[in-house]
Design a protein around this nucleic acid. Structure first.
Length: 122
DNA sequence: TAACTGACTCGGC
DNA sequence: AGCCGAGCCAGTT
């Protein structure tokens, strides 16, 4: 069998790791947050939580929109806030969803934490 | 093509 | 309780 796809640039066929990450992120309920590691774990690659964060960076081009602001690090810190813009847009969005932020950290992180591996459980 | 990078995480000091 | 180093994967240069 010859390799049929050398230069796959087909937008309809881009089921990459990023797409999977975005798909999970889009299912995060409003007013809840999750961590990069949690998403990575759900996808089976728990050791590469970095990739999840990376996927978030590319989420800007994703359609429909990906609530990347609902994804924080394992301690509830808004580690990616700087990628939302020069201002604290990430924090503003979270506060808009009734999520309280203090010193760039999610208050009651464990309460609002949403684990795809448990909640989504598919 | 090989090397580097990075919105992470965990374990040890 | 806070800081440091190593492991990890995939996309980018």
């Amino acid at each position: 069998m010859a390799k049929a796809q050398h230069h796959l640039k087909d937008p309809t066929n881009k089921h990459s790791f990023f797409e999977d990450v975005w798909d999970v992120a889009r299912q995060i309920p409003k007013g809840r947050v999750t961590s990069y590691g949690a998403i990575a774990n759900y996808l089976g690659t728990k050791m590469s939580a970095r990739m999840v964060g990376w996927a978030m960076g590319a989420a800007g081009n994703a359609k429909p929109k990906v609530p990347a602001h609902r994804v924080v690090n394992s301690v509830g810190l808004l580690s990616g806030k700087m990628h939302f813009g020069p201002h604290d847009e990430m924090q503003k969005r979270l506060e808009k969803e009734k999520i309280k932020i203090e010193k760039d950290k999610v208050v009651d992180f464990e309460k609002v934490f949403w684990d795809p591996a448990k909640e989504l459980m598919l």
